[in-house]
């Protein structure tokens, strides 16, 4: 069963990005790209050749591979709604966070390796914001662990139920908000980053991958899709009924679509923040999660 979930995750991940893009287009009064566009893009990129800069070392070639590898490892750790994760043990969310951290680290190294001032700037921004998003992520996880009494990501997400929501409403709401902000930051969405912009000077994530092409770029793009899928799966699991009843899977997938639409709505209803305001947003995410944890301890 878990392996079906693995295949489902790997296959459906790009679709979530597509749902966001499509919803954004519809809200803006456009028709938007076909839902399968991300798949077309990936096939197109896979058929292309690769260009490497003369001044780069092997790091720039290594980074997309390592990044995709660690993200694939992450898929194993995250339950897909009612379907449990293949691998789970107590404290596995720490592994998850640092696997993602490793992906980011290698992407940053790859960016710095190209020697471009743009990419150096992007890497510096990414490092700064990631450092602020990380504590917020851990605080949300700690809060959830405290509320549910479970210790692995899988157990936390599969135990959380309406009872918890009833008894710990404020904490869970705070955690949900904090997690959503972390979700936006980790996936480089508005208001933190703008995945659709063409302006290198304003980019964070996109600017780090400017020098990648062909299959390398495909790996990066696919990694982006996997990451947003995984974090959305964690977020959605907070709201589905507990247990391992597979019948809840459609509801869970529907919830994933809803999250995609929510992201699209956020992106369509506001502009990007000024770069100097981003830390404030991420710190407030941390504060929300910390507050939730505090509430749970004093109860």
């Amino acid at each position: 069963m878990s392996f079906i979930a693995l295949i489902l995750s790997l296959a459906l991940a790009p679709l979530l990005l597509s749902i966001i893009n499509r919803s954004k287009a519809v809200i803006a009064g456009r028709r938007g790209a076909p839902l399968l566009q991300p798949y077309f893009n990936l096939t197109r990129l896979l058929q292309k050749g690769v260009v490497y800069s003369d001044v780069s070392s092997g790091l720039v070639q290594l980074s997309p591979v390592v990044n995709l590898a660690v993200l694939c490892c992450c898929v194993v750790l995250v339950p897909l709604g009612p379907i449990p994760a293949i691998l789970h043990f107590s404290g596995d969310f720490i592994l998850l966070a640092y696997l993602m951290g490793m992906g980011r680290f290698i992407t940053m190294l790859g960016a710095l390796d190209t020697g471009s001032s743009f990419e150096g700037m992007g890497a510096s921004r990414e490092a700064f914001f990631a450092a602020l998003a990380e504590p917020a992520f851990f605080l949300t996880m700690a809060g959830l662990a405290r509320i549910t009494g479970a210790q692995s990501l899988n157990d936390i997400l599969q135990t959380i139920n309406s009872e918890h929501w009833l008894h710990a409403t404020p904490s869970l709401l705070l955690i949900a908000v904090a997690f959503f902000l972390v979700f936006l930051a980790e996936n480089a969405r508005i208001p933190i980053d703008d995945p659709t912009t063409h302006l290198e000077l304003t980019m964070i994530h996109e600017v780090m991958i400017l020098d990648h092409s062909g299959p390398d770029l495909a790996m990066i793009e696919y990694g982006v899709a996997l990451k947003i899928w995984l974090l959305a799966a964690i977020f959605a699991a907070l709201f589905v009924p507990p247990g391992t009843n597979v019948l809840w899977l459609p509801l869970f997938l529907l919830l994933m679509v809803a999250i995609g639409m929510l992201v699209a709505m956020v992106e369509s209803s506001m502009a990007r923040l000024r770069l100097i305001r981003v830390p404030q947003l991420l710190i407030s995410a941390g504060v929300f999660a910390g507050l939730a944890l505090f509430l749970e301890f004093v109860q």
Binding site: A28, I190, P191, T196, T197
Partner: peptide, 16 residues
């Protein structure tokens, strides 16, 4: 300008 700050609705409408 709306496009540059990442505000899609005005960017799309005004483009048209």
């Amino acid at each position: 300008m709306a496009m540059d700050v990442g505000y899609a609705p005005t960017a799309s409408f005004c483009g048209r």
